[in-house]
Each structure stands twice: as C-alpha cells, then as structure tokens.
Amino acid sequence: MKVIEIDNLKKTYSESEVEVHAVNGVTLDIEEGEFTAIVGPSGSGKTTLLNMIGGLDIPTSGEVIIGGSNMNHLNGSELTDFRKNNIGFVFQAYNLIPVLTAKENTEFVMKLQGKSKVECEKRSKELLESVGLGERINARPNKMSGGQQQRVAVARALASKPKFVLADEPTANLDSKSTETLLDIMEKLNKEENITFVFSTHDARVVKKARRVITLEDGKILSDVRKNGGE
C-alpha cells in the first residue's frame, strides 16, 4: 500500500536575484513498511523535500498525497491536525520539551490527540522500553545524553501511531556508538512493527542500513535503489 505519493514536486526560492530550485521535479512513492534513506550532498534539497512531505512547507508546484489526502487541499489549522495524527517527526537537534520528563515528552502528542491518561501511560512506557529507556522514563532531557534524547524523540514520534516517521538527519549530532544504537532501534521497529521510516542522511554507515536509498542532486532524483530483502 502506498503511504506517500509525490508527483512532480517543486520548490523554488526566488528571494535573491537568482532563483534556487531547491526541489526540482521529484516524483516518487513510498510503500508502507519501507525503510528509506534520502541521501545527497549538502544543499541537494533533502530538508526541503522532507519538509514538504511533512506538511511544514508548501510546494511551489506538484503534490504530496498521504494516505489518499492531498496536502495541497489543507489549510493551516488542518495541516497542523494532519501532522499531529499522521506524521511522526524526529529532528536533528532532538528538540524535546525541556521541562517535561521522557515519559511526558512521549505522551505529549497523544495528549494533544485527546487520548486517555491510562492509554498515554501504557503506550509511553511500552515505547520507552522498546527504545531501551525503560529505566529513564522520569528523566528530564538535560539529564540524558544526546543519543538517549534522540531515542525519546523516536518514541514520541511513534506515540501518536503515525502513518510514517520523518527524520531529517537524525544522527547528525550523535557519535558513532549512539548512531548505531538508534539505527538498530529504528530497524527493529521497522521489522517488528512494520513502521515506515523516511530519513535523510549523509552518513555512509547510516546509508548502509537503509533498504531503499534515494539519492538527490540539485533537487532531482539521481537514483532510487531498493536493496534485497526489502520486499
């Protein structure tokens, strides 16, 4: 089943004298359960593409269809709701809420969704255990390492039961050991729970783990490779 359908997507910045075609005609589909890396040199348009998929940025032309809904047809407030219910986000700089504990951070989106207290507690505990932080549920972000914070971010992204998880350079701020742990967890979640991940990276070790690698250059798809064992 297709989770994401992208058709001739373009984003052009024309603030300066010269127009910048950050994303320049991308067409691709992402199937449920895929573990996709978007790679490419800095400035190739990875972030811009992910932001448009995530409904954070508006395309200049083309469309993004998620689970059958065309993102172009949603207004600001509808987009916010759409993100909340359909997309899990993991950011490069962890971006947890500093005043909340790991558990509270994980529950945050669920609470925005109006889930019951019991459900929030149960799911946040399960998720934190599955990212290996069962012992640290009451720790605040400033008491955790970068790797641990990013694992909380993954747990938070999953808490809302999204259709897929978007992660823009999730390992860029991590050392190699934490990078490996995080990817193992993401891989395990993908295999065991069939969670769809789309992440950008320029780290070769991360690329190796991906089962589909889409390479961007100057806002265009240079190659799109599915590795064996993917399907």
Binding site: T80, D81, K84, N85, F89, N95, S160
Partner: peptide, 16 residues
C-alpha cells in the same frame, strides 16, 4: 522560538 516551532510542527495548534 525553536521549541515553539517544534511544538507547532508536531501538532500543537496556534490556539493551544
């Protein structure tokens, strides 16, 4: 600012 941006990204509405 960054934190508020993140909150809105993950689904917090303007009114909230």
């Amino acid at each position: 600012i960054k934190e508020l941006g993140m909150l809105m990204a993950i689904g917090m509405k303007k009114l909230q």
